[in-house]
């Protein structure tokens, strides 16, 4: 049986939910960022599969832009994590409560 668009979309839905569960379950800022990367890649798979289905390159072009934004997000996010770690010597998101009212 040939894998159809539905197969790829179901796989990307599973991947996206794994990423969501990781964001909620983990108590480590680096792993939370990694879970966000999983979610971005699930969406990328959706774009490529849909682009292949409709026979256009637009999906791949958008994946190209998503990768660029992911690189920028990783650079800024990791710089934030380094700055936060310097302040509190911890990576747990529960420790950073300065903005909590």
């Amino acid at each position: 049986m040939e894998p159809t668009l539905t197969h790829y979309l179901a796989l990307s839905a599973v991947l996206f939910s794994i990423g969501t569960a990781g964001v909620f379950l983990r108590r480590n800022l680096i792993t939370v960022l990694l879970s966000i990367e999983i979610m971005l890649n699930a969406v990328n798979l959706t774009f490529v599969a849909a682009g292949r289905h409709f026979g256009t390159v637009d999906g791949q072009v958008i994946v190209f832009f998503v990768m660029t934004v992911a690189a920028a997000e990783a650079a800024v996010g990791l710089a934030l994590i380094i700055a936060l770690f310097r302040h509190k010597e911890s990576l747990s998101p529960d420790v950073f409560t300065s903005l909590k009212w």
Binding site: L5, T6, L9, A10, S17, I18, A21, F24, H53
Partner: peptide, 25 residues
């Protein structure tokens, strides 16, 4: 985290409708 399981079901249902409405190339 349990809500993410609900998210799978929801996404798959939405995508099934999208696929049945679309024309393949």
């Amino acid at each position: 985290a349990l809500l993410s399981v609900v998210l799978v079901v929801e996404l798959v249902l939405a995508m099934r409708q999208f696929v049945s409405a679309s024309q393949p190339s």
